[in-house]
Design a protein around this nucleic acid. Sequence first.
DNA 1: CCTAAACCCCGGAGTCGCTACAGAGTCAAG
DNA 2: CTTGACTCTGTAGCGACTCCGGGGTTTAGG
Lengths: 131, 131
Amino acid sequence: MKIGEVAERSGCHPETVRYYERIGLLPAPPRTAGGYRDYRPADADRLRFISRGRELGFSLEEIRSLLGLAEDDGLSCQDVDRLARGHLLDIRNRLNDLQRMASELERVIGSCSGGERGQCAILDTLRHPPS
Amino acid sequence: MKIGEVAERSGCHPETVRYYERIGLLPAPPRTAGGYRDYRPADADRLRFISRGRELGFSLEEIRSLLGLAEDDGLSCQDVDRLARGHLLDIRNRLNDLQRMASELERVIGSCSGGERGQCAILDTLRHPPS
DNA sequence: CCTAAACCCCGGAGTCGCTACAGAGTCAAG
DNA sequence: CTTGACTCTGTAGCGACTCCGGGGTTTAGG
């Protein structure tokens, strides 16, 4: 199948598929007589694996590791687990940061919408941090 | 004051201060005889404004707008409010995304840690998305 | 058989917000 | 006078794409 089809099946943009090939995340497929990339179903599976990993917020390097771990049938489950747990911690940290941002913004916006004139509470907050 | 001091006062890295100058977010200050940038306190204030905006997750372009709005004393409060509310929506969306990632990861990790051998549930999830 | 549309190719540049050099110059303390 | 800390410029790198230009190929319809 051609790049458009594998892209559609996997949920990646065709340019992204070429990009993954360029950085070595997806093996370069054979070409047709006309020079088009010719993929097999396993490539679509691999791309779906990548795309799903991205949806879960894994970096491409993390996904590269996961793909490596998925290859060897040894006792890699612990490694996978460790990687996933580490990643979960990252996400929780980012959640905390965003949560703080959101509350702070809500507070600031709330204090502004009341006053119709005079000083702007949002700009004041930016000017004079409460920390 | 020199760049190191203004950086420390504002919480920005010196290289970041130069970067902000390069992209026109901070006006280029006069130079000393030796060619060093010579800042005044107002520059530190502006940098703190920027850095605080970054902490709240505003993009540099948004901050550029906020700085512009902070300049003219007209009826810009509504614009500021609109910008902040729009930004809050962005953050809430990102929060939702991260929240979904975290729950999904927790689920997947939970289902993995039980099994000591056989197939890895995490890899299986990546291989066979539940969607 | 011919043409137009849809697809594909490649290489390179742009995005955002820094950060990290390299290689040079300046300044203050001891 | 020397050492070390700071500063200067310009450039390149990061991650994960995305878009562009200028071509080539395939396919469906007339």
